[in-house]
């Protein structure tokens, strides 16, 4: 190959990815950098945003226990949501995978169908069922005399976890499903022929093999739940804030953009660290087994 041709072929990948790169820089990196910068600006009730470099917002977040509590709540909800989706989603995917032809496609549709419906609509559904005295289920239970007062759901962490788990479930099921597809179709028969019972097969043979799928599903669900906005906003409102709804409030209600930017930046950094860290751990743990 001549020098010119070599040069051209070295430039080609850059040229071909340039449009996507420009889009990436334009709509993601630049706004992100501006948000980070914004978090160092000053703000006052009457003077508005002042483009100076101060650590006031970061200092406030670091010292005021309100923020610590709110971040802790955000991650607690995300962790519980992740656990719940894993506990329900993994068996769900396994059962689904064992169904025969027609039922399998039907139930796959049932599980994935909700992805086509807006998160807001799905969350409002929970509100309609459990929302205080007027919630359908609450009304029914109370009229049957099962409960004296409505099940507390709105403005509770439990409510948020349940609604988020519902919204996130397809991601977990899909991820475990993908892992199940990689299983040798005869693997259960092989274990059975060696004398293993159904519980042993699931515990010793199936679980270890779908664990990477569960964990990658968990990473997706965790990061989506920790940064979720619509569901916490509807269930928790302004009474029970998480990081995303707090940042939103600072931006649009208090109009303290720099503080909102600091909250958003901190959430982003924490998420990136957690996701990258756990991904590295998982890859190292399973490198032996899965190429």
């Amino acid at each position: 190959m001549s020098m010119a041709a070599e040069e051209r072929s070295a430039r080609a990948p850059w040229a071909l990815t340039a449009p996507a790169l420009m889009l990436f820089v334009g709509v993601l990196l630049i706004p992100l950098a501006m948000t980070v910068m914004l978090s160092f600006h000053d703000w006052g009730q009457y003077k508005g945003i002042e483009p100076v470099f101060i650590l006031k917002n970061w200092h406030e977040i670091a010292t005021d226990p309100y923020y610590a509590e709110m971040f802790w709540r955000t991650f607690r909800i995300a962790i519980l949501t992740t656990l719940l989706t894993a506990l329900l989603g993994a068996p769900e995917a396994y059962i689904l995978n064992r169904m025969s032809g027609r039922w399998k496609s039907f139930f796959l549709l049932v599980i994935l169908g909700p992805l086509l419906i807006s998160v807001v609509a799905r969350t409002l559904g929970w509100a309609l069922l459990f929302g205080g005295n007027n919630g359908l289920v609450n009304k029914l239970l109370m009229s049957l005399g099962v409960m004296r007062s409505p099940i507390p759901f709105m403005f509770t962490e439990t409510g948020m976890v349940v609604a988020l788990a519902h919204v996130m479930m397809p991601f977990m099921v899909l991820s475990v499903w993908a892992a199940l597809q990689r299983l040798d179709p005869q693997i259960e028969n092989a274990a059975m022929s060696l004398g293993a019972g159904p519980v042993t097969i699931i515990r010793r043979i199936i679980m270890p093999q779908i664990m990477p799928g569960v964990l990658s599903g968990a990473i997706i669900v965790f990061s989506l739940s920790a940064s979720a906005f619509a569901t916490p906003a509807i269930i928790g409102g302004r009474r029970l804030k998480v990081a995303a709804t707090l940042a939103y409030d600072e931006f649009l209600n208090t109009l303290n953009w720099p503080l909102g930017a600091a909250v958003a930046t901190l959430l982003l950094i924490a998420l990136v660290l957690i996701v990258v860290g756990s991904n590295a751990l998982i890859e190292r743990r399973y490198a032996e087994v899965f190429r």
Binding site: D184, Q186, I187, A190, M192, S193, G195, P208, F290
Partner: peptide, 27 residues
């Protein structure tokens, strides 16, 4: 089937990928 005590070699081998050779045989 688990109690028949037959040895079976599958076309795809169906080895347990998360276990070493020795662990597979020991199962």
């Amino acid at each position: 089937p688990a109690k028949r005590g037959l040895g079976i070699v599958f076309q795809s081998y169906a080895l347990f990928p998360h276990m070493t050779a020795a662990e597979n045989v020991a199962f």
